[in-house]
Design a protein around this nucleic acid. Structure first.
Lengths: 181, 181
DNA sequence: TCGCTTATATATCTGTTAGGAATATCTAGC
DNA sequence: GCTAGATATTCCTAACAGATATATAAGCGA
C-alpha cells in the first residue's frame, strides 16, 4: 500500500506539471508549495516506488548515471483526480507559538511580548515576499492553466500574513497596557 | 536530533493549571487548546510515565480504583519554564485545501468553487464560535492570571477565521468571473 | 436491593508517518 | 587530478494517531 495518500497526492500533482527526478520533485515541493506543504525524501522515495509498482508512474533514465526521471501515466492522472476529489482532511493543529502564549503566565509577560514581536516581524517579512511573488505572477504573460490556481494559494498566504500582523499588533497593545505582570 | 516532544510542554502546561488524571488532561487539551493544539492518549500516557520517572510529576491515587491524578512538582514547573523558553518550532505546513486548489486545473473549476464555499462557510461558523467564547471570557468576573493569555489565543483564532472568510470571498469572485474552464 | 446494560474512564498497543542524518555519486571549477 | 558543492538515494529512529482492551461507575428495570 502507499504511504499516506496525502503524500501521494503531492507527488502525483508535482509530476502532473512535468516529469522530474525524485530530488527535483522535493525541491519543487519545497520551493513552490513550501508555504502550505512539505514533504521529505523519506516520504517521496517510497511513495514513488509504490506508485511505480501500481503503474501510476513510469520511470525513465535520468540526467545522470544512477538517476531516474518519473513521469505520470494515464492511470496516474486518473489516480490524481480521484485523490483530489477526496474530502479534505486537515492536519491536527499544532501551533507552537500559541501553545507558549497560552501558558504565558508561566513564561512571563516580557517573553510573551518578545514572541509576539517576533511573530509580527516574521509575518511582515513573509507578507512582503508573497506580495513580490504575486506581482511577479501577475506580470507574467501568457497565463498557463495553472495560473489562477497558483494565484489562489498565494492570496491565501497573503491574507494569512496580514491577519498575523493585525493579531500580533492588537495583542501587543493590550498586553503592553496590562498592569499585571 | 530532536523532533523534540512538544507533547511534554502541553502536558506540563496542563498540569500547571491544576492536577488531573491523564484522561482529564486529554479532555482539557481537546476542549481548551483544541483550536491550536491536539494530543492523543498514545502520546499522553508515555509522556506522563517519563515525566514521573524524571520526577517532574507526582502521581497520586485518583477518583477511581485504578486511576491516577498527576500533579506538577517544583522540578516539573522548572522544566516547563525551560521548555516554554525554547525557540518556537513550527510544524511543517500541511494544508490539504490549498494543495487541492493548487492542482485545480486537474480537479476542475467547479470543484474548486465548491471547496472554497465550504471553506468560507466553515470559517464563518468557527468565527461565530470563537466570538461567543470571547464574549463569555470577557464577561467573566475576577480574571485569573491566565485570563489575558487565553484571550490572546482566542483572538488568534478570530483573526485567522476572518482572514479565511475574506480570502475565500476574494477567490470566489475572481474564479467565478474567470472565463477559462 | 439485586443483577443487567450502558456509558465513561483508563491504559496499552501497533502500524504508520515523518524528518533528516548518512551515504553515494556526479559535475565543474581550479 | 582534486576539491567543493550540487544531485540523488537510502535508511533509521522517534513521534504519532487511533483502535482496542479492560475496568469502573451509573442507570434502570424487576
Amino acid at each position: 500500500m502507499a504511504r499516506s495518500s496525502q503524500t501521494e497526492m503531492a507527488v502525483l500533482g508535482g509530476l502532473s506539471i512535468e516529469p522530474m527526478t525524485a530530488y527535483a520533485l522535493r525541491e519543487a515541493i519545497r520551493d513552490v508549495l513550501g508555504h502550505f506543504w512539505s514533504e521529505s525524501f523519506g516520504q517521496i522515495y517510497p511513495t514513488l516506488n509504490a506508485l511505480e509498482e501500481a503503474g501510476h508512474v513510469r520511470r525513465e533514465g535520468g540526467p545522470r548515471a544512477r538517476s531516474s526521471v518519473y513521469a505520470l501515466t494515464p492511470s496516474g492522472l486518473a489516480r490524481l483526480r480521484d485523490l483530489l476529489a477526496e474530502p479534505v482532511q486537515e492536519a491536527q493543529p499544532r501551533n507552537g507559538l500559541l501553545l507558549r502564549l497560552f501558558f504565558g503566565r508561566v513564561l512571563g509577560r516580557d517573553r510573551c511580548l518578545e514572541l509576539l514581536r517576533d511573530a509580527r516581524d516574521r509575518a511582515r517579512a513573509q507578507l512582503g515576499e508573497y506580495e513580490g511573488m504575486l506581482a511577479q505572477l501577475t506580470a507574467t504573460e501568457g497565463h498557463t492553466p495553472d495560473w489562477p490556481y497558483m494565484r489562489l494559494t498565494l492570496l491565501a498566504g497573503i491574507h494569512q500574513c496580514r491577519a498575523g500582523v493585525a493579531w500580533a499588533d492588537e495583542c501587543l497593545t493590550t498586553l503592553e497596557g496590562d498592569p499585571t505582570p
